[in-house]
Amino acid sequence: MKIAIPADGPSLDARVHNKMGATPYLLVVDSDNLSFEILDSALLAPGPVAGVQALSLVLEKGAEVILVGYMSPNIIGPLQENGIEVVTSVSGNVKDAVMKYNRGGFAVAVNGDPASSPKPSVRQPGRWTEALRKTAKQYLSLLPMLSGVILLAGLFKAFLPQKLLLALFSGNMIQDTFAGAFIGSLLSGNPINSYVIGDTLLELGVGYAGVGAMMLTWVTVWLVQMPVEVSVLGTRFTLIRNIAAFLVAIPASILIVWLSRGAW
C-alpha cells in the first residue's frame, strides 16, 4: 500500500511536515517494504492552491493513505468518499509514522472530522481490501508453480529407474547421506520441488538420511547456479559457502534420523 507523507527532508528519517501545501518534500512510501518515491514540491504553485496540487501529485502516484500533521476537514471528507484514508495529528519521523500506521496505532478522521469518534486505522475497509487483493495475487502467482510440481512428480516417478536409486542408495546410512547430499547439490532449485522428490524417494525405499541430506543441499548448495553466485559474491565466498553448506548437511541429516528414533 502506498502512503503519502509531507516531510521536512528527502528521507525516511525526516520529520513529518504539518501541511501538504507548505511541505519541502512529498514522499510516497510503500508500506510493505518502505521503499519510497520523492515528489518535487518545488513544482507546487505558492498560495492556497498548493495543497490541492500536492494532493493531486500523490494521488496520481497511487497513494491510498495520507499521513499529515493537519488537514482541513473540508478536504478530508471528499478524500474519504473516494476511498482515500487520511490520518492527521501525525508527528515524528516518516519511518516511525509508517510503522505505527502498519501496527494500527493511528486513529483516522471520520466524516471529515479528525476529532469525531476516531476508529483504528487497521479496521478501515481499504486495508482489508488491499490485504485480500494481495493474498489473491500471491495465490494466483503460485498456481503455475503448483502445476509444475505435479508434473515434476509424475516425470520423476516415470523416468527415474528404481535400479538406479538402489545403486545410488545402498542402505548404509553414511553412504546414503553423502549420496543424497550430492544429488541435492546437482538438482538445486525451488524448495517445493524437493518435497515432491523427497516423498517419491521415500516411496521407492530410500531412507530418511539420504532424503534429508538431499533436501538440505537442494536449498543451500547451488552447483548449477555457482557461476552466477561467483559473479555477484566472488569466488572465495561462493566456494566456502557451498562447501560449508554441503558438509553441514551431512551431520544435520544424521541428526534428523537420530531425532526420528532411527527411522531411516
Rank of each mutant, 00 (worst) to 15 (best):
G21F: 02
A109L: 10
L168K: 07
G234P: 00
K2C: 01
Q138S: 12
I76P: 02
S170A: 11
A263E: 14
V29R: 12
G148N: 07
N172S: 03
F106H: 14
G212F: 03
V87S: 01
S260C: 05
A252V: 13
I150H: 05
R261A: 15
G207M: 13
D32F: 08
G83I: 05
N102A: 06
S170K: 15
R123Q: 13
P10G: 01
D8S: 15
F36L: 11
P120H: 14
L79Q: 07
S147M: 13
W264M: 00
T200I: 15
V219A: 15
S170P: 03
I192H: 06
W222N: 12
M226C: 01
T220Q: 10
E37F: 06
M145H: 10
I76H: 08
Q162N: 13
S121Q: 06
V86S: 01
Q175H: 11
L255M: 06
E203A: 14
R133G: 08
A115M: 10
V110H: 05
S121P: 00
G234L: 00
A4P: 00
I192S: 14
N172D: 11
A136F: 09
M99A: 10
N102V: 02
G92M: 03
P125H: 11
A45E: 15
A209W: 01
G189L: 12
V108F: 11
T235V: 14
I66T: 01
D199W: 11
G207C: 04
G234K: 08
M20N: 10
T135F: 14
A97K: 09
L216R: 12
M20F: 07
G210V: 02
A50C: 05
N102C: 02
L239G: 07
A158H: 10
T238C: 11
S35W: 06
L164C: 03
I5L: 06
L39R: 10
L155Y: 09
N242Q: 12
L39N: 12
V29M: 14
G180S: 06
A50I: 12
D13A: 10
M214T: 03
L143K: 12
L202H: 08
T177E: 02
D13T: 02
L67P: 01
L255A: 14
A109R: 09
T217K: 12
G262A: 09
G205T: 12
L143Q: 13
G47A: 10
R123V: 10
I5F: 01
E203D: 07
N18G: 00
P251F: 13
G234C: 00
V219M: 15
P78N: 05
